[in-house]
Design a protein around this nucleic acid. Structure first.
Lengths: 227, 227
DNA sequence: CGTCAAGCGATTTTCGAAAATATATATCTA
DNA sequence: TAGATATATATTTTCGAAAATCGCTTGACG
């Protein structure tokens, strides 16, 4: 009789919750009461619960038996663990991608870079809007770099790490305002990758991650709610 | 009034289902109807659904919107992807572990090796029992090797890959009977790791994985139900 | 006083049935 | 008869309420 919605409710709630956590609208350690979420997303208990279960498996929320769900906590240790693991995983993905990448791979990277560079750096009236754009393009650029590695398993792991790290970025932004690394860093990585210079690409990528991590570490102390 | 069960029903069902899939009691691609599972585990719909949602996030089952769950399929391509990724991930984990591991790390490895070697190789009346033992000790041995790497994130990923691969082992066993690699291979890896010879450890570990994969590939064609 | 048990409100967890969606079967039209 | 359309059946998805559990307060008792 209703005929609406392609995606099921649990899938919708999953995406909304995930986004709310990823962007910091729901804070680390925050309690996620069933009733609260039902109102927030205007659905019954089952879809909420199912969404939370999936989010738990992806380390975005934590479940304590019979005590309910919480947004996963953050900590310096966790961010550092995330970052050094990411350096290694992306190193492998970049290796494979550079080895196998064809013209379409190159094109996609160049296109992503162009979009990324098109977002103005300074903040104006539409600052927040543009920031969202920038985050999306940034994500797409890094994804494009490893897109040719032809390993769903490895890419899946890289994406997971990237998402986890991006939460720290979002949290950092909401305390210390704008945080946006230089476009030149990305330009460098792109050039090295397109030149098929593996060692340089990996070195620059490592620097990129480590720099960002360092910036995030200072900004994140505010939250520090254990892993 | 009931006072039983520490773990919740959904957690119990999760473990049972996971085990049933991991050991091949539920076959790749097999349909998982709600009613069937409710009877099988004697619970209501909610715990089953929640368990399935978590298993989906861990790639053990697949959900098609409004069409229900299936056991995740298997394929040669998937196994190969899994294996080559595992080689690289474990390489990193082993590196870090060898670098940081202390005496307790060494002891744990030696202890695991001892247990592993204690399981008799030939099959007798208790063949199946012993096989289960062997699988557990095998798992524990490999876990012990990377236990000192002090990176929950990396270890989590390694475990996930290991579990996925172990499903192929279980499936292979149930078609072509016993499949158990030589203890000497493990002995070699252990010796190299304890001698802190990184290159040798990685080389032997790679060989170990690649050999097993090759054996599995032939046995797995029976199932081949797409990834 | 201190501590332990019983009771109470808040919350999570689970069930059973209703609603929505997919799948199979039958019916009608060209 | 083929192809589409309607009807019936099976299955998934969602809701609302019952059951179980937690955390806390209250009061009894040593």
């Amino acid at each position: 009789m209703t005929m609406n919605e392609q995606p099921t409710l649990n899938a919708t709630v999953f995406n909304l919750l995930r986004q709310d956590i990823l962007t910091g609208r729901l804070l680390p350690g925050e309690r996620l009461r069933a009733e609260t979420l039902r109102q927030r997303y205007d659905v019954g208990g089952s879809p909420v619960r199912e969404a939370l279960m999936r989010l738990e498996a992806e380390d975005f929320v934590v479940l304590e038996q019979n005590k309910g769900f919480r947004v996963a906590g953050v900590s310096a240790a966790h961010l550092q663990d995330l970052s050094r693991t990411r350096v290694e995983i992306e190193a492998i993905a970049l290796r494979w991608s550079i080895a196998r990448g064809g013209v379409d791979w190159e094109s996609a990277i160049i296109a992503s870079m162009h979009r990324l560079a098109s977002v103005p750096k300074r903040l104006d009236a539409e600052g927040l809007e543009r920031n969202v754009d920038w985050l999306r393009y940034h994500r797409e650029f890094h994804a494009a770099l490893v897109a040719a590695c032809d390993s769903p398993v490895l890419v899946g792991m890289r994406n997971h790490l990237f998402d986890q790290a991006e939460r720290y970025v979002a949290l950092s932004i909401s305390v210390s305002g704008e945080l946006r690394d230089d476009v030149s860093e990305h330009q460098g990585i792109m050039d090295a990758a397109l030149a098929r210079d593996i060692d340089l690409t990996l070195a620059l990528n490592r620097r990129h991650i480590e720099r960002t991590t360092k910036k995030l570490l200072t900004a994140i102390e505010h939250y520090e709610s254990a892993a």
